[in-house]
Design a protein around this nucleic acid. Structure first.
Length: 277
DNA sequence: TCCCAGGACTACT
DNA sequence: AGTAGTCCTGGG
């Protein structure tokens, strides 16, 4: 068990539960178990400290600080967003301490391909099925967990196998992606340094990845905050609160108003919309 | 039984 | 360039 002093606002519950990640478990004592790349962690937070334990405590403090983006100060972004759009004030204040989690690129790609026309519970279920079947088992606190497999681990998985994991019609998209990665047709690291629009185009050349999925991948795995993932929920908010209809109009508005922090604005809106009541 | 859930693809104008 | 119809799956 390690202790990490909380220096900046950090809302652990919102950060985990606001829809960024799928493979976590909430315990009765309000701690969370999270499958974090190559290890399983348990996190609990009080007013001053984050308490973390893991099956692998090597370099744990750095890994956790990096994962939850704890060293980044969000004040400048928040001030910018409020100044850019007064109507966002309540959502920004409500979401103080919400951090953007830095996720593993491969798992993020698979997760958001599965997310197309799908519900959160089913996405999580499919990912857990894949992990249980092809990922490495980890015993932690006397419970079984399964790491998410690498694309090498999945190289021989067939369409039928994917279907068996309840991914539905997205089976072919997942298989194509895995094949391309194993054939070195895609370099997962290059997206960190690509301009957002170029990266979007490149991702969307793959079957099963459209504008929304590509945006989510760049946001959650590559920290591109100038994307604007438009889903049905965002459309609803834009229509009701901003009187803006149509994807192109929404995109233009976001770019003009929120600019390089568009994705943060969406995340705050989403968090506020779902949890304020 | 029908409908939809944090979309994308295909086949049409 | 823009738009219907279709796509697994589980739950209401």
């Amino acid at each position: 068990m390690i202790k990490i002093k909380i220096e900046k606002p950090f809302d652990l519950e919102s950060t985990i539960c606001c829809g960024q990640i799928f493979r976590f478990f909430k315990n009765e004592n309000k701690s969370f178990d999270i499958i974090l790349k190559d290890r399983v962690i348990n996190v609990f937070k009080d007013d001053d400290y984050l308490y973390v334990s893991s099956n692998n405590e090597k370099d744990l403090k750095n890994v956790v600080e990096e994962y939850f983006d704890l060293k980044n100060d969000y004040r400048a972004m928040n001030d910018f967003l409020i100044k850019s759009d007064e109507k966002l004030t309540d959502a920004v204040l409500f979401s103080t301490g919400l951090k953007m989690i830095k996720q593993d690129p491969f798992e993020t790609i698979m997760a958001y391909i599965i997310s197309a026309n799908n519900g959160v519970l089913q996405i999580a279920s499919a990912l857990n099925n894949i992990a249980k079947k092809y990922g490495k088992k980890v015993i932690f606190n006397n419970k079984e967990y399964y790491l998410f497999p690498s694309y090498k681990d999945l190289s021989c998985v067939t369409l039928e196998d994917f279907r068996g994991c309840k991914v539905g019609f997205r089976d072919k998209y997942l298989k194509q992606m895995v094949n391309k990665l194993n054939n070195n047709e895609i370099d997962l690291n290059e997206f960190y340094n690509l301009d957002t629009n170029i990266a979007l185009d490149k991702l969307m050349q793959n079957a099963g990845i459209g504008p929304k999925v590509a945006s989510c991948i760049l946001l959650f795995a590559y920290q591109k905050y100038d994307v604007f993932p438009i889903d049905t929920w965002v459309k609803k908010v834009m229509k009701n609160d901003y009187k803006i209809i149509g994807e192109k109009n929404i995109r233009d508005f976001a770019k003009k108003t929120y600019g390089k922090y568009s994705a943060i604005a969406i995340q705050y809106l989403f968090n506020y919309g779902r949890n304020k009541n």
